Simulated scan of single mutants.
Amino acid sequence: MAEYLSLHPDNPQPRMLAKAAQVLREGGLIAFPTDSCYSLACHLGDKEALDRLRAIRGVDDRHHMTLMCRDLSQIAHFARVDNAQYRLLKTVTPGSYVFILEGTKELPRRVMHPKRKTIGLRVPDHLGALALLEEFGEPLLTATLQLPGDEAPLTEGWEIQDRLDDQLELILDGGHCGTEPTTVIDLTSGAPELVRAGRGALAPFGL
């Protein structure tokens, strides 16, 4: 049974953030709110937790996972980013975007696309998510909390508890945060390529 905590949207309680970070360090899976919709998260280095996350989502290793970072310096540590890409990222982060980039050797191979060696990266524009990343001290391996067969992500804490209570260790209920997922932009070929239109505006990319 998942532990259920109500996270204040404007003043995230430090004890709840600390509890969530502890659960993640111990190999747990959590659900938490972001600036687009709720996400699932686990520790980057935990293979078993990643396997569980993929099973819940019903995806295989060809599905791009998202490494959620607290700032651009973390992104640059885990992905190859040239000067032009960095300037572009700086103009739109934090925000509701995922960027597909080539991973560095700092990333375990199992979290990257098996053929392209790429991964999604993002910096959320959400107080609770950023506070959790700050408390955890590392990026989080994440995926949108949309279950197989559903047309939209889960968006209420009680609904997440009802559907996934026996599959998660902790649910951070931060209130309704919408059902529109992030905009996904592929930056691996030089010019930005739209993978998925979502909450993030397309204008900054000329798309």
Rank of each mutant, 00 (worst) to 15 (best):
P108I: 10
P148H: 11
I160R: 03
K115W: 13
T144R: 12
T34P: 12
Q146N: 09
R109H: 15
A21Q: 06
Q85S: 06
Y38W: 05
T183P: 03
D60C: 00
D165R: 15
S189E: 11
A84G: 06
N11F: 07
L172K: 02
A20M: 07
T179W: 01
I119H: 02
C37H: 15
G200Y: 04
L88T: 15
L24C: 10
D150R: 13
L127R: 12
N83K: 15
P139T: 05
L168H: 09
L89E: 03
L207T: 01
L132S: 07
L107T: 00
E169V: 02
L132D: 02
T66Y: 01
L194E: 03
L24P: 08
A2D: 00
R110A: 12
I171K: 08
D71C: 13
L89C: 11
A21L: 14
Y97N: 06
H176V: 05
P94L: 07
I160Q: 07
C42F: 11
I75G: 01
E26L: 09
K117H: 15
G190P: 02
H43I: 02
D165S: 12
C37K: 09
A31M: 05
D35Q: 02
K19E: 12
R87E: 14
A203T: 12
C177D: 00
I75W: 01
L72W: 02
D166A: 12
L133S: 09
R57W: 02
F78C: 02
R199V: 08
A76E: 09
L130R: 11
L154Q: 04
L170D: 00
H8R: 09
G206I: 08
A84N: 13
S6N: 07
G28C: 10
V92E: 10
L101A: 10
G175C: 01
G174V: 00
L5M: 11
V195I: 12
A131Y: 07
L40M: 10
L5S: 01
G28I: 00
L88Q: 12
H77T: 04
P94R: 08
R70Q: 05
E26H: 11
P14I: 10
Y97Q: 08
S96R: 04
A55V: 00
D150F: 01
S189G: 03
P204N: 06
I185W: 05
C37M: 09
L67G: 03
L40R: 05
G175K: 00
V123H: 14
Q74D: 09
E156Q: 12
G120S: 12
P153R: 06
R110D: 14
E135F: 13
H113P: 15
L101Y: 14
